[in-house]
Write a protein that binds this DNA or RNA. Structure first.
Lengths: 225, 225
DNA sequence: CGTCTTATTGAGTTTAATCAAAGGGTGTGG
DNA sequence: CCACACCCTTTGATTAAACTCAATAAGACG
């Protein structure tokens, strides 16, 4: 198990299940605490306010597939039907707004146009999964890593200071998301650094040195360089 | 391009864009005629009544990913937002009920509970994509083919006569769906036949000879046999 | 019957997984 | 404050799986 320091809290009011709850429904989750488990009754949706969550499935043979990482602004737990279809936890101290399922269903009944919005959101999720499928089955290790780093860069809410970007998940999480082993992830990152496309100054962050090249690699319009 | 014989029609009334339309909104599409293209404005949803459709994306470098096959009872074109997110055509003479998008949106406004159903459908689509992702990135060729054949068997609406099952798509379609090459698909099918797990009596069909073994292979609880 | 398309089979290559070991940073305890 | 231990990461060598290139075989259709 992972050690972690005490999570910072904002306007704390009550403590519940290892998280701290504020008046606006935002709770603070300590690193590696769960949002929900596969099979649980769908009680809440979670809007990530700050931090990172990961959604994943674990298989009988021990293989794990990370389905998605959720960053600020993303909503998780939505579109599962009556029970959650995967496990979800946070990989850093994370502020998440807890939205009871019942309140969303009520809102849907009152405002039909909301339903269309939610359907569009679901459509977006499907489209994202489709793109990710293609990444998983059609791209090489370097293409996957390049595409992954680009998507991390695109999703940084904080201003891109200099170009030092946060990479909050560990290698095994990246591997399980991209369908690679940690060795291949590590080797590929080293290769990209050797190619002067990225830099890896510290654990938990990376720097893009040649954005154009990274894009070319991600799009696989470039075989070698 | 593909050649095809003239499609059979049911209660034909008018002809439009290469398809025949019946009074209940069911059109008959000739093999390899499109339902819609990526980027088109979302005008209709299509409920497959009989036949098979395929949804796919084509990439700049020529790679193609088949996202899904749709059989009788499946609805395609749904959950795309304002424009279709992939191409869709039929691979055999196919009867499809054309549902105008506007009529569905109207129905959603009148009957909010319908929205929840549609959301559940979308959730199911997301779950299906997730499972397929895992298949694509975690499973070996033999596991993918076994899982694919099982899903084909499960989706046969027609009574499973003897166990002779329809396999309506060609090898390249299977390959592009499973993230393999046609050579690997062919070799793997041959291997399964040699293992006495399936039979391949004719083009366009297959027979399950050992369902238990096929299930074991698909679940990858069995490495070799 | 001949041509064209699709499928199968074979040989060699490439990629990433696996097995194995060493390096580096963090935190704890002496 | 320093040393040790642990975990995560990197690097190396080998193996296995699927891809590529190439040729042959089998159907479908005119």
């Amino acid at each position: 198990m992972q050690r972690y320091s005490t999570a910072a809290t904002i306007t704390p009011q009550t403590s519940w299940m290892g998280s701290t709850i504020a008046s606006d429904g935002v709770r603070v989750f300590a690193p590696y605490s769960p949002l929900f488990h596969e099979g649980d009754t769908t009680a809440n949706f979670y809007e990530i306010v700050q931090g990172v969550a990961r959604a994943y499935k674990i298989f009988p043979d021990g293989r794990r597939q990370i389905i998605a990482f959720a960053f600020a602004g993303d909503i998780v737990g939505f579109g599962h039907g009556d029970t959650y279809r995967f496990d979800c936890d946070v990989i850093a101290a994370t502020h998440a707004r807890v939205i009871p399922r019942s309140s969303l269903l009520r809102a849907m009944r009152n405002r039909p146009e909301l339903s269309e919005k939610l359907l569009d959101m679901a459509a977006g999720a499907v489209a994202g999964m489709q793109d990710h499928s293609i990444l998983l089955c059609r791209k090489t290790a370097i293409e996957r890593i390049a595409a992954f780093l680009l998507s991390m860069a695109d999703r940084q809410v904080e201003p891109v200071t200099g170009r030092r970007l946060s990479l909050p998940m560990c290698r095994v999480d990246i591997a399980d998301f991209l369908g690679l082993t940690i060795e291949t992830v590590s080797r590929t990152l080293t290769k990209l650094r050797a190619m002067r496309v990225i830099d890896l100054p510290d654990r938990g962050c990376f720097v893009i040195r040649d954005l154009g090249q990274l894009r070319l690699l991600a799009e696989s319009e470039l075989g070698s360089a």
